[in-house]
């Protein structure tokens, strides 16, 4: 059963069309990342799902209840969605305990105390219940806001850039921790970010946004390996393009030779276009007779970033072999992978 279904959603904000025909579906227990550059409409979509942003056209259903449609608008307070904000939105005049219990409608004091303890244990903040938000670190504040949203027992959790204010050193760990909590409770979540690394680390599904539309949605691996278009390919990682024409279902001719794909190609035979090659899909072999030569080299710790000139093309190559120096002639080899031609 899908937890969330969105059909052809449109929204305008102060006269500007922000969402123009968004379709999306989220299975129960899944975590979906809305990824895109700032100003592309991803936060607007999140707010529309929460009922905080008016929509002009299209439907949103949460757990099979129609929430937005022409003439239908279920107010935020009846949607049972939890929301985590970029600035955490912890109420500064309330303690951690009061914040966590803010949305809990349970009246029985024992049950309330029990819920509080559960939540504190879940986010590992036992002993901090009587602190005020300003006495906590950024990561702790974020965990309180997660606990507060979960204590309310939402059907769907929405996270708006939740990790952007967290120090880079602890961000990775916090992402893992929160992902674990959501998986443990089988909570469906939608998460907005402009960082592909956060999206890869946190989400089961990825929806890439461009100017108010979703350009591709699916598993992160699929989007990375088989992007629909150049925008998706370039957003998710570095790229090289080489002119290419399709030879048969699995092979493609390029200036650096005939290359084979692990899966069937996405274009018909004799189609001429450009082949996508990621920098880490090359292998470099020393070869003094080769016409490829290393023209730039940057050492990056666990790998080296090379620029290789071949014919009139410049290719970016990431290699764990750090021994090649400027001017070294190398032979380019492809690692086996699925090829994509645009």
């Amino acid at each position: 059963m899908p937890m969330l279904t969105i059909n052809n959603l449109h929204s305008a904000y102060q006269g500007q069309v922000v969402l123009q025909g968004v379709d999306l579906s989220l299975a129960e227990g899944d975590i979906l990342a809305l990824l895109g550059p700032s100003g592309c409409g991803k936060t607007t979509l999140l707010r529309a799902i929460a009922g905080l942003q008016p929509t002009s056209h299209g439907q949103i259903s949460i757990a099979n209840t129609l929430c937005n449609d022409d003439g239908v608008l279920v107010p935020s307070e009846q949607r049972h969605v939890g929301m985590i904000f970029q600035d955490y939105a912890l109420f500064p005049h309330l303690t951690v305990a009061q914040n966590i219990l803010f949305g809990v409608s349970e009246k029985n004091p024992d049950l309330r105390a029990q819920r509080l303890q559960e939540m504190l244990a879940l986010v590992r903040l036992q002993g901090l219940a009587e602190r005020f938000p300003h006495q906590l670190s950024g990561g702790q504040q974020q965990r309180v806001s997660i606990a507060r949203a979960l204590a309310y027992r939402p059907q769907l959790l929405l996270l708006d850039e939740p990790f952007s204010n967290i120090d880079a050193q602890v961000r990775g760990q916090l992402i893992c921790e929160i992902r674990q909590i959501l998986k443990q409770l089988n909570i469906s979540a939608i998460f907005v970010t402009h960082s592909k690394d956060e999206a890869f680390a946190f989400a089961d599904q990825l929806a890439l946004f461009k100017a108010g539309k979703i350009v591709q949605c699916g598993r992160p691996e699929t989007l990375y390996e088989l992007p629909n278009d150049r925008y998706v390919a370039e957003f998710l990682g570095s790229v090289n393009y080489l002119p290419a024409s399709i030879y048969d279902n699995y092979q493609v001719d390029t200036p650096i030779g005939r290359l084979s794909s692990r899966t069937a190609l996405n274009k018909p035979i004799s189609y001429a276009g450009e082949l996508l090659l990621r920098p880490q899909q090359f292998e470099l072999l020393g070869d003094d007779n080769s016409d490829a030569v290393i023209s730039e080299r940057r050492f990056l710790g666990n790998h080296c970033h090379y620029v290789v000139d071949i014919l009139q093309y410049r290719l970016q190559v990431h290699s764990e072999q750090t021994q090649w120096q400027l001017g070294q002639r190398v032979k380019l080899q492809m690692k086996a992978h699925s090829l994509v031609v645009f």
């Binding site: 905080l52 935020s76 049972h80 904000f85 939105a89 949305g103 507060r148 309310y152 939402p154």
Partner: peptide
């Protein structure tokens, strides 16, 4: 922060 209001509203506050 306007997110205070949004947080309260998503937690069923009138």
């Amino acid at each position: 922060s306007p997110s205070y209001d949004m947080a309260a509203m998503t937690m069923a506050q009138k």
